[in-house]
Design a protein around this nucleic acid. Structure first.
Lengths: 253, 253
DNA sequence: CGTTAAATTGAAGATCGTCAACCAAGGTGG
DNA sequence: CCACCTTGGTTGACGATCTTCAATTTAACG
């Protein structure tokens, strides 16, 4: 049993706080720009586990900002083959790309209970017309997603099964740490081994075996939706993990 | 020996012609906007096969628009493991994401001789400040890249070896057809089986075997840098290929 | 014509998947 | 309140796809 919070609190206050925090890692963001973002939010909502937030092909007129919880973007192939292409955490604009694509070619689903904010596309258009710098930062977030996708592609394509899992855990550790959702080397990861298998292109059977290998090797445990990393250096070595693809440095954009 | 042109001609005239053509598939683009794009090009250059256009980590102040040839974006792992994350064709803005990322986390290399145009980032900043609609279309091109990445991720993760190759060929066929670089069911693909292996996360040995299977199955041939599709329906079926992820429909963006 | 990179083929082996059974936990309804 | 039902986790045996290693052929190019 764990007392780790599944979601960070946010005080129910500012739906864009975590997004702003992450943008400010990459560039300056004025208080006015933050306020404009806040003003773009139309409403905030709780979403139960398992809900499909966006189905492929549906016309879209709003985008979803994740306040807390874990969201997956995924594609399906025949015979139940599923590929999770992205995992999202607090402060991620999970389908911002829908703003310009106008529909998604994949599904978006809740892997845990969520809190989300909806931003209508007309507000985004307005930002793009009137706030070029803020618009560039929003563009940037979609580019960061793409960079994470590429690293995941490298994982799936060229890392061993154990390396893939180690890499996924290292990445989630860093990304959750950025938004204050770790406690030391522990963090809540309220997803199943099946989800992890879909994200790493393995079977849940093999994920289970690799997790037990990582456990007996003293590297990490993943039980009851809680990850505990015991040997971060060792885990990073197995994963060949390094953070440059997350672009954690401040630059004028 | 084939008489297929490796690159389309463009008359040496307009470096942004193919890009404009592809943008106009997705949305209206005024002649003024096209002219602004044209004005953003600083210089045009020929690049020999094998040249690294952008090395990971280097600070960037310009982006590369591919006029003709095949470009790969790729990442390396220890022990020579390479993953091609993106293949680019004429009219692709191969490292437009470098505009906001300011450096790339991967390499960009020429898989064939190229013709490229360089666009300084200050010109892109100016477009983003003064031409919001054009800026959105440029943003869109990076989102289309990400969609292709996701489909490739599905391929690598969940398709069989033969399906991955079939899918890659179907995709290149459609994308090259869009820019007028096919002749019926044939097109020049001046890359090696090794490149194809790096793109599909297979070994070149296995790619070779799957290509010969596709050949003897009467589906397609790939010889001397030329692809010839004999049974497009069959190939698409093996690939589970469908074009929706390429977003070939016109929408106001 | 020699040198190098790419393509091809064979044999053997490893990683990971499939199939199957069983256990654990949690929620629901009678 | 407990039986039962569903979902997820765990373990074992077996098998297939794809890799590795190796040798040879072909093609390209100075």
């Amino acid at each position: 049993m764990s007392s780790l919070p599944i979601s960070n609190d946010n005080g129910g206050e500012d739906p864009v706080a975590t997004l702003v925090r992450k943008l400010r890692i990459r560039d300056g963001l004025t208080d006015n720009e933050a306020a404009i973002l806040r003003g773009a939010v139309e409403r905030v909502e709780d979403v139960p586990l398992g809900r499909t937030l966006v189905a492929a092909g549906m016309p879209l007129d709003q985008s979803i900002l994740l306040i807390s919880g874990i969201v997956a973007r995924y594609k399906d192939l025949s015979e139940g083959q599923r590929q999770i292409t992205d995992l999202h955490v607090s402060g991620d604009f999970v389908d911002l790309h829908g703003f310009l694509l106008k529909r998604l070619e994949h599904h978006v689903g809740a892997l845990s209970p969520l809190r989300v904010a909806y931003v209508p596309h007309r507000a985004l258009t307005r930002i793009s017309e009137e706030q070029p710098h803020l618009a560039r930062l929003l563009w940037l977030t979609t580019l960061l997603d793409a960079s994470v996708q590429r690293e995941r592609m490298l994982s799936i394509g060229r890392r061993s099964a154990i390396g893939r899992i180690a890499h996924a855990i290292c990445e989630l550790y860093v990304r959750l740490d950025l938004v204050g959702e770790t406690e030391g080397r522990r963090f809540a990861l309220p997803i199943t081994q099946i989800d992890l298998a879909d994200a790493t292109s393995l079977t849940s059977v093999h994920v289970n075996r690799m997790l037990s290998k990582l456990r007996t090797g003293g590297l990490m445990t993943f039980r009851n939706g809680v990850v505990e990393i015991h040997d971060l250096d060792g885990l990073m070595r197995i994963a060949e993990f390094e953070t440059s693809y997350l672009f954690l440095d401040r630059q004028p954009r």
